[in-house]
């Protein structure tokens, strides 16, 4: 135990015995919290980003780069706010992204490949882990959620594309398929059929983004960074609200209904 740890326990007025119990409690809570963070982040992402990160042939230059970081920063910000507000623990964003990544790989192995026979090359996930770590680092350094929103939010949105491009770029090599040019990702999406996912439901660069030519990726990344600042702020504040317990006043009949013994004289 370091001097700092002892100073914390002293400030908390914990005896060595209570500190030991508290440590056991820590272990239990960490495990439970991990599952909670994991599941909430996963469900949130599936509901709002879903297909854009399921399949390699959905990872386009516009919506994948835009939607995936904006959605994933939401749970990162909310959990960061909760961990920071209550415990001054700057690990909420990193834990959210890391647990989500572990969960995604488990699902990709067991559900997508194991049960539906989709090869992993079709369903490799992207991750916002680097941006999430940057959020936590900046929060520690600045001690300010506003500065974290402005700088961390921008870094989160901007770093998503280059980080994931390091390992996803090979999927965008050109190849010839049935007399047409296609990316390897397109071919993987075609070759391993998804009966319920026809090609036309992919939303690939709809709009005028392609007027930016080869820079479309970076235009999306900068816009994503801009939106991430606001998404972070909104969800940070929601996390803070979640840390503030509120009680609804109820009458004695309601309390009796739930087994409370009401002293008639006190009424």
């Amino acid at each position: 135990m370091t001097d700092n740890d002892q100073a914390i326990l002293a400030a908390a007025e914990m005896s060595p015995r209570i500190a030991r119990y508290s440590r056991t409690f820590d272990y239990l809570i960490v495990v439970i919290a991990a599952f909670l963070v994991w599941s909430v982040t996963h469900i949130h992402f599936l509901l709002f980003a879903g297909d854009w990160d399921f399949f390699i042939d959905w990872k386009d230059r516009q919506y994948w780069i835009l939607i995936t970081p904006i959605v994933s920063i939401m749970s990162a910000a909310a959990f960061q706010a909760i961990f920071w507000t209550l415990f001054r623990l700057p690990i909420g964003a990193t834990a959210s992204a890391l647990l989500f990544l572990i969960g995604v790989w488990i699902v990709r192995y067991h559900a997508w490949e194991g049960m539906a026979y989709f090869p992993l090359s079709l369903v490799v996930p992207a991750t916002g882990l680097v941006g999430a770590m940057a959020l936590d680092f900046i929060l520690v350094l600045s001690r300010s959620w506003v500065i974290t929103a402005v700088f961390g939010g921008v870094i989160y949105g901007l770093s998503f594309f280059p980080t994931n491009w390091i390992y996803l770029a090979p999927y965008f090599q050109p190849a010839e398929h049935m007399g047409e040019m296609a990316s390897v990702a397109d071919i993987i999406g075609y070759v391993f059929p998804r009966s319920g996912t026809p090609e036309y439901i992919r939303i690939i660069e709809r709009g005028t983004l392609r007027t930016f030519g080869d820079s479309a990726n970076w235009v999306s990344a900068f816009f994503s960074a801009f939106v991430c600042m606001f998404a972070y702020s909104v969800f940070w504040l929601m996390g803070v609200v979640a840390c503030t317990p509120k009680y609804i006043p109820v009458g004695y009949r309601f309390k009796e209904l739930y087994g409370a013994k009401i002293d008639a004289g006190a009424l």
Partner: peptide, 24 residues
Amino acid sequence: FGLIAAVWILWWLRRPLIISRWLV
């Protein structure tokens, strides 16, 4: 990347955590 993230999380988890930090 996950390894770096794990190191960061463990850096904090090794210390007194929930109740003690909340009281502080």
